[in-house]
Design a protein around this nucleic acid. Structure first.
Length: 276
DNA sequence: AGAGGTTCTCGGGCGC
DNA sequence: TGCGCCCGAGAACCTC
């Protein structure tokens, strides 16, 4: 579900909801979500009495900071957070509840149960999985044309799976990778190492522009995404190719196609994005 | 019925 | 042969 623009929107809305709240207790209904510490009791005990001091993001990971800890949360396909009054019933897809000292609680819901949480003492979180080894943020100075060129040159993968690799660059998922490739006029099955300097420069700029525009629109809602305040995104209205199979290309008018690349559904315009 | 916005693990292939 | 890296396939789970 969420790629960088959606996670960034969740970060902002979640921060508004939970900043300065103190966790009194935690219930975990589906223990497999908690990846670290290995013992669920340690996870729960550590958070008792902690106050939320910030909500950050690294790639597609949310980071909920308390006095002492960093809670790393990945929403995967369908994870979502919401603040509820204590007396409101919760459904079978609610897997973790953080009870606050006021009359509210933060609930983590995840229909597919793919999401993950890691809890570390603050300061070491970036040196541990799952944050260790991640590539640069697309909006950082580190993500330059030169960097992208160097990385793409030395891989044998197709460009789409290469860009989806969070070790190369964080934030792109199936929607935005298709969008960025279309906007740069690059076929998703091109070998990454075959891209010319000029194409890489354009691709770099379109990755940044696409993600940036999507953040401004609160992300894309395709079927289930909502932010922590239950609001949908608006960037789906701006999409060029994702989910538009058979519809007219907004640039050339020819029908868009959908194939599978690297095991992922892939949308593109056969006219605007040529193999070579 | 199979695909869906994600990423981890596993095993094969290849090079040193 | 052994090791390590790279890459693709499959798995984790539920809904429509």
């Amino acid at each position: 579900m969420p790629e960088l623009p959606e996670v960034e929107t969740v970060r902002k809305t979640l921060k508004n909801l939970v900043l300065h709240k103190t966790i009194e207790n935690v219930t975990v209904f589906w223990p497999k979500i908690i990846k670290y510490p290995l013992e669920i009791e340690q996870f729960i005990d550590a958070l008792k009495g902690e106050t939320i001091v910030d909500v950050g993001r690294r790639g597609k990971f949310l980071i909920i900071y308390t006095n002492q800890y960093a809670l790393i949360s990945h929403l995967r396909m369908e994870g979502r957070y919401g603040l509820y009054p204590k007396n409101e019933p919760f459904d079978k897809h609610t897997h973790v509840i953080f009870y606050f000292s006021d009359e509210t609680e933060l609930r983590y819901r995840d229909v597919r149960k793919f999401g993950t949480m890691h809890l570390y003492l603050k300061g070491v979180e970036f040196n541990q999985p799952p944050l260790s080894g991640l590539g640069p943020e697309p909006f950082s100075d580190e993500f330059t044309v030169k960097y992208l060129q160097t990385k793409l040159k030395k891989t044998n993968r197709k460009i789409k799976p290469a860009l989806l690799d969070q070790k190369l660059l964080v934030g792109l998922g199936n929607i935005y990778v298709d969008e960025a490739l279309f906007r740069a006029g690059i076929h998703p099955e091109r070998l990454a190492s075959s891209l010319k300097r000029k194409e890489i420069a354009l691709l770099h700029d379109e990755i940044v522009a696409t993600l940036s525009e999507a953040v401004k629109m609160g992300g894309s809602t395709i079927r289930s995404y909502v932010n922590s305040q239950g609001e949908i995104g608006m960037f789906q209205l701006e999409l060029y190719v994702y989910g538009r199979k058979g519809e007219e290309c907004k640039k050339c008018g020819r029908p868009l196609v959908k194939t599978t690349v690297g095991g992922r559904g892939t949308h593109y315009c056969p006219n605007c994005q040529r193999i070579r």
